[in-house]
């Protein structure tokens, strides 16, 4: 059971975060941080269908996480879910077309190993 919940959670997290990044990129850089401008930006962003899709996936991931916390310990859930870092970095390179150079790959790999060790 915990593996099913975990699989649902990691798939939903990866999908959600990539869709969100895609949607925010389409929106463009936020430069005005006054509350009224942020409110207007939010009103635009919530109608972006990538962002809507991203939030839907993250909602699934959030409730799967709540369920997981009742089934298992954080020290199991967190290291295994570090697999989302691998999937998301690969998707960032090939779907979002980011220039993931050697330094960034190396940094991402160090972080993934570190997350597993810290949360074991």
């Amino acid at each position: 059971m915990k593996w099913v919940v975990l699989a649902v959670m990691t798939a939903a997290t990866t999908t959600g975060e990539v869709l969100q990044a895609m949607g925010m990129r389409r929106h463009g850089e936020i430069r005005d941080f006054r509350p009224s401008a942020l409110g207007r930006a939010l009103a635009v962003v919530v109608r972006n269908r990538f962002v809507i899709g991203g939030f839907t996936a993250m909602g699934v991931s959030f409730f799967a996480f709540l369920k997981l916390l009742t089934l298992t310990d954080l020290s199991f859930a967190v290291p295994v879910s570090a697999v989302t870092y691998v999937a998301e970095t690969i998707l960032a390179r090939y779907v979002l077309n980011e220039h993931v150079n050697g330094l960034r790959w190396a940094g991402a790999l160090l972080v993934i190993c570190g997350v597993v060790l810290v949360s074991l």
Binding site: V18, M24, V111
Partner: peptide, 17 residues
């Protein structure tokens, strides 16, 4: 979301970890 409006996902992920 604000951060992702200008920064790469492959930058945000490791840095916020």
């Amino acid at each position: 979301m604000a951060l992702l409006s200008w920064a790469d996902l492959s930058y945000v992920l490791p840095v916020t970890s």
